[in-house]
Write a protein that binds this DNA or RNA. Sequence first.
DNA 1: TGGGTGACCATAG
DNA 2: ACTATGGCCACCC
Length: 110
Amino acid sequence: MKTQDDFFQNVYAIVRLIPKGRVTSYGAIAKSLGAIRSSRMVGWAMNLSHSQEIYVPAHRVVNRNGELTGKLHFATPFLMKELLEKEGIVIIKEKILNFNIHFWDPMQEL
DNA sequence: TGGGTGACCATAG
DNA sequence: ACTATGGCCACCC
């Protein structure tokens, strides 16, 4: 259908807007798209993001607690953490330090 | 038609 | 910090 494809593309568009060194959550993205679809669908979209033509920085999307819950879906279980640390983000025990400071809210940027 | 499974979220105990 | 619900909705049997 058209609507769900649009939803996916909108998700990818927002993820591409996340600045380096900043992160956001699945729920925040879902809410910025009108809270129509649930945050589970954002996670599903990330699951398919690897096959997108244009690069999608999926490592900048974590859950509401700043935990790297999606790391197992990357090429290696370490890749997500490595990419974030390369952008200056400190991670302790699968959790982002000072998550509230690094958080990027799609609502405020649109 | 229906049950199980998620890269989720909120609330409660 | 942990489990347990209930809601969410696409996907795959």
